[in-house]
Computed example of a mutant assay.
Amino acid sequence: MELPLIALLLVVGLALGWGVGAQYARARRGWTDYRAAKRAVPGARRAALLLVRAVFTKVGVIALLLFGAVAYAAVGPDHDRAEPAPGPSPSVTATHGVTRGR
């Protein structure tokens, strides 16, 4: 009668050990991944800040160029060097009621 009880306890112990061991292995992998991610965060943060700084620099340069173009356009053209506007062209019209040579 003791042999089946020992076998049952062995099976239960193996099942519990397998479950606890699988959970422990999963926790170890999670902890290792967490430490790797924690080590990578400062480098990733630094890289992200460098990329953001580059984007802001480009946007700032473009904004300054646009502001300069608008300011230049607001001043207007130089009237001394500007071509004169074309005047009205003379039109030839027939005069009614006037007879020449009589």
Rank of each mutant, 00 (worst) to 15 (best):
G68N: 06
R28H: 03
V12F: 13
G17A: 03
V55F: 09
R26V: 05
V12A: 11
G97I: 01
V70D: 00
R46N: 06
Y24G: 08
L5E: 14
V92H: 02
R53F: 10
R53Q: 08
K58Q: 14
H96S: 15
A74V: 08
T93P: 00
A73W: 07
G60A: 08
I6K: 14
P86E: 05
A85H: 09
G60D: 07
A44S: 09
Q23E: 15
I62N: 13
A73S: 04
L5A: 12
R81Q: 10
G13I: 04
T93C: 10
A47T: 01
P4T: 01
T57P: 00
A54L: 05
S89C: 07
R29A: 11
R26L: 08
V55W: 10
A63H: 03
V11W: 06
A47F: 03
V20Y: 09
L50D: 10
L50N: 12
D80Y: 06
A71P: 01
L64Q: 13
T95C: 11
F67G: 10
L50H: 13
S91K: 11
A74I: 04
G13P: 00
R100T: 05
D78H: 01
G68C: 04
Q23C: 12
R35G: 03
K58N: 13
V98H: 03
Y24P: 00
A71S: 07
A25N: 07
K58S: 15
L14P: 03
S91A: 15
R81A: 08
V55A: 14
V92K: 08
T93H: 13
A69P: 01
G76Y: 00
E83C: 04
A7G: 03
A25E: 06
L16V: 05
R45V: 08
A54E: 11
V12G: 06
E83W: 06
A82R: 09
A73P: 01
E2V: 09
A7I: 03
F56E: 14
P90S: 04
T32L: 15
I62D: 11
A40E: 02
A7F: 14
R35K: 09
A40Q: 02
A94I: 01
R53Y: 08
M1V: 14
A25S: 07
D80H: 02
R39S: 03
I62S: 13
A7Y: 05
G101W: 02
A15L: 07
Y34K: 01
A69R: 04
G43L: 01
P42A: 00
V61F: 02
R81D: 12
L8S: 10
F67I: 09
V92S: 07
T95V: 14
P77I: 11
K38N: 14
P4W: 00
G13A: 13
L51V: 01
G97H: 02
T99Y: 10
V70A: 12
T32D: 15
A22W: 12
A85T: 12
A22M: 07
R53C: 07
I62C: 13
A94Q: 02
V12R: 11
V11N: 09
L3R: 15
V20F: 06
